[in-house]
């Protein structure tokens, strides 16, 4: 899923400093799963903003609501009747949400309340880790099912680099060296030979380097017509 972190209250207050009636809009998708932008978090943020503004002597009217998914126009349209009632909308969805909203409602201002960080999952309660870089050409099977593009700080295809020590990445003491894990897995399973050949140069056209991407499923497109 897409993982995000909430922006600081200070930053959010700064964005809506001159607004008097705002809507905090949650999303039931990924941000609900990673406990950052669902109904509960929208409710908490709404009351926090209300209290903070009251303290500043600049009371604000804050409503909150959640959409099924902000990355789907079918649900974004549900805002049509009320979106103009506010000075601003603060979206708690990933970076996709406020863009779908902005595209559908060009007259309204949408502020992002979260920083979208990565594609990953929870490794323990309250801890999420990156697993995928969305490069558009998955080859994790070549690396024991572990992705060096997303999980090696240098995206090496032939690691580990000289900075790997005791299974830890040189960049951060809390980050595992994924190449250490890849090598150990290949050794344990007797497939070290998989790592000795020079791998083909990666074609980054399928990644963001090829420009903004689009995915077309012909059969669905036709079905819609």
């Amino acid at each position: 899923m897409i993982v995000a972190d909430r922006k600081s209250l200070e930053e959010i207050l700064g964005m809506v400093a001159d607004r008097e009636k705002i809507l905090i809009l949650g999303c039931k998708g990924c941000v609900t799963v990673c406990n950052v932008g669902g109904l509960k978090e929208a409710e908490i943020l709404a009351s926090t903003v209300r209290i903070a503004r009251k303290k500043e002597g600049k009371p604000v009217e804050v409503a909150h609501r959640v959409l099924e998914r902000q990355c789907d126009n079918e649900y974004v349209t549900q805002l049509a009747d009320t979106v103009a009632d506010y000075d601003a909308v603060v979206s708690m969805a990933c970076g996709v949400g406020p863009q779908f909203l902005s595209e559908m409602y060009p007259d309204q201002v949408f502020f992002p309340a979260v920083n979208t960080t990565f594609f990953g999952g929870a490794v323990q309660h309250g801890v999420w880790e990156e697993r995928c870089a969305g490069c558009g050409a998955c080859g994790i099977h070549l690396f024991g099912g572990l992705c060096p593009i997303a999980r090696c700080a240098k995206s090496l295809l032939h690691g580990p680099c000289g900075g790997s020590a005791n299974g830890i990445c040189e960049v951060h003491k809390d980050t595992a060296c994924i190449w250490d894990a890849i090598v150990k897995k290949k050794m344990d399973t007797g497939h070290l030979e998989d790592l000795v050949a020079v791998k083909p140069f990666k074609d980054w056209r399928t990644a963001r380097d090829g420009g903004p991407r689009r995915s077309i499923r012909e059969e669905l497109v036709k079905g819609n017509i």
């Binding site: 032939h158 580990p160 000289g162 020590a165 005791n166 250490d180 070290l192 000795v196 050949a197």
Partner: peptide, 14 residues
């Protein structure tokens, strides 16, 4: 001197 030590010679060979 980097880890895993057993793999270093293989990486050199590559």
């Amino acid at each position: 001197f980097a880890d895993p030590f057993e793999f270093r010679v293989h990486r050199l060979a590559t």
